[in-house]
Write a protein that binds this DNA or RNA. Sequence first.
DNA 1: CCCTAATAAATAACTATTATCAATTAAAGA
DNA 2: TCTTTAATTGATAATAGTTATTTATTAGGG
Lengths: 141, 141
Amino acid sequence: MNKLAEDLKANKLKVTPQRLAIYSYLVGTNEHPTVETIYNHLKEDYPAMSLATVYKTVASLRDCHLVKEFNLGEDSNRYDANKDVHSHLLCTKCHRVYDYYGDIDLKHVIYELKTSFGFETSALDMNFYGVCEECRGNNEN
Amino acid sequence: MNKLAEDLKANKLKVTPQRLAIYSYLVGTNEHPTVETIYNHLKEDYPAMSLATVYKTVASLRDCHLVKEFNLGEDSNRYDANKDVHSHLLCTKCHRVYDYYGDIDLKHVIYELKTSFGFETSALDMNFYGVCEECRGNNEN
DNA sequence: CCCTAATAAATAACTATTATCAATTAAAGA
DNA sequence: TCTTTAATTGATAATAGTTATTTATTAGGG
């Protein structure tokens, strides 16, 4: 039994081929795909798969925290199975999303939110918008 | 001529009563309303106003950077006319959004993104998710 | 005060996502 | 291994947020 199937079982999710394929794809990529992207990628191997299955699967995976759902102001959500703490850089030209593992220490901020405002932080995200190296290299702007 | 009307003119937007009302409301509130909220709030004074007008107006204001459009993983976008640099705290219980003006110095991060990755940051946002003081005070968890 | 381009209102259309439901299947237990 | 059952899938309808269209109205310059 592989690790990914165990992840599913540990969360009381039945290990179906579709579900395993979607989760595997998310674990193996760093491109932060949308549902549409996931669907198109797996259509080849799973021609019968429904778009609804992808929607339901990512929702399940999100609910048990195996993947993270996020939105960078685009028209659809993106999904990420990377559990390490990191930020996202959205290139506003090519619309690729890069990961950034920087030394941003927010412990004191979270502590201040708790002590000064009574706000108990359970999650946070940090997004950078700009132009990536490749796009800056290319032509205009 | 008031300041808000001048803001509109400076961006070549005609100063219509509806537009001024929407912009004024956004400038005067700190509750980060959605289009629906804006619409409901102004319906009283402008019973003829269309929801489409609110959508078009916030899009115009966003395009000329008079307001900021953002999404905190909810089902609709929120709008904020507060130009000061700040973060948002979303209470996942009452769904209120609070502002946080903390001393988060990201200059070195932005510099590193530029020098190490070639990523030229033009905007960033930082969102905290958790439970606010009032909701923590109330009953369960 | 007119004129005209911009805007507003009403509503249709569009798109991402969710719900429904019958058919299928994973997997627990006999 | 066979049976059983609840979970899942696939197909598609429904929903919700947003955008586009069209016609009537209006802000604001001349």
